[in-house]
């Protein structure tokens, strides 16, 4: 598998789009940190990129890549190679390539300009978001029959996770304002990887504000390393779960 991943990675990192994406991220990150005297503001601008642009690029690029590699996947599956090796070498190859693009484009400047815990959390969160959306894209690709549909599904997932979901949560919170929604609101955020990543970063950037929310559940969650730990584990689950279901489907899929 390792060797196959190597070739997948070799192919993707020479992709013009991926190179452009890396450079764009690098340019954005450096300019955010350069032009804002306060690294805090740079981090916040990057957070917005991580929550909107990176998921979009990751999910769309992965879907397109999957379908562009379809004939190649077919060819591989005619080789003495298991479906598992094929699927995971594609997945890991893509994760590695987009992960590197993110780490070079965002990780490196962030750690240079703000090598603190919050910078590290931001980078880690963004990396996990990238992986999550690659995983979701793979799932979307294996359940659909053609590229256009798969891109449609991928876009819908992005729109739902990045835009719609929080609006819906807000509506629920507004309508249920008379009920204790403390636990529920934490559960809501666990159900969306974007929210998890965002809250991880909040725990670094806005801990003083978070500590202002009265309520034992919040206090416990936000003040302890447990909260950070749980969020990371849940985010990892958000990578593992779709990729696992994707694999289950792919292993029985007719190519």
């Amino acid at each position: 598998m390792k060797k196959t991943i190597k070739y997948v990675v070799y192919d993707i990192i020479r992709n013009r789009f991926v190179i452009g994406y890396t450079l764009l991220l690098l340019l954005l990150s450096v300019s955010f940190f350069w032009f804002e005297a306060d690294p805090n503001k740079g981090l916040l601008s990057l957070l917005n990129i991580i929550l909107m642009v990176i998921p979009l690029v990751s999910v769309i690029f992965s879907t397109i890549h999957f379908y562009n590699s379809y004939e190649f996947i077919e060819l591989l599956s005619a080789q003495p190679m298991s479906r598992r090796t094929i699927y995971f070498s594609q997945f890991l190859g893509l994760c590695f390539s987009l992960g590197m693009a993110f780490l070079i484009g965002v990780g490196l400047p962030t750690l240079i300009f703000d090598g603190s815990m919050r910078g590290l959390t931001l980078v880690l969160g963004g990396l996990l978001i990238t992986l999550t959306l690659v995983a979701i894209a793979f799932l979307a690709s294996v359940i659909t029959k053609d590229k256009a549909k798969a891109i449609g599904v991928a876009l819908a997932v992005w729109f739902y996770l990045c835009i719609l979901y929080d609006g819906m949560v807000l509506m629920v919170l507004v309508n249920m304002a008379d009920y204790p929604m403390e636990k529920a609101s934490l559960v809501f955020s666990a159900l969306n990887p974007m929210d998890l990543a965002r809250i991880l970063v909040l725990m670094q950037l806005d801990v003083s504000a978070l500590m202002g929310i009265t309520g034992a559940v919040f206090q416990n969650f936000f003040s302890s390393t447990w909260g950070v730990f749980i969020s990371f584990v849940l985010l990892l689950l958000w990578v593992i779960t779709p990729v696992f279901f994707g694999y289950r489907i792919f292993s029985k899929k007719d190519l």
């Binding site: 835009i163 929080d166 403390e182």
Partner: peptide, 14 residues
């Protein structure tokens, strides 16, 4: 009015 909405801090919606 709704302290719980704090979890939406810095979200696109907010």
């Amino acid at each position: 009015r709704m302290p719980q909405a704090m979890i939406l801090l810095r979200s696109f919606t907010a």
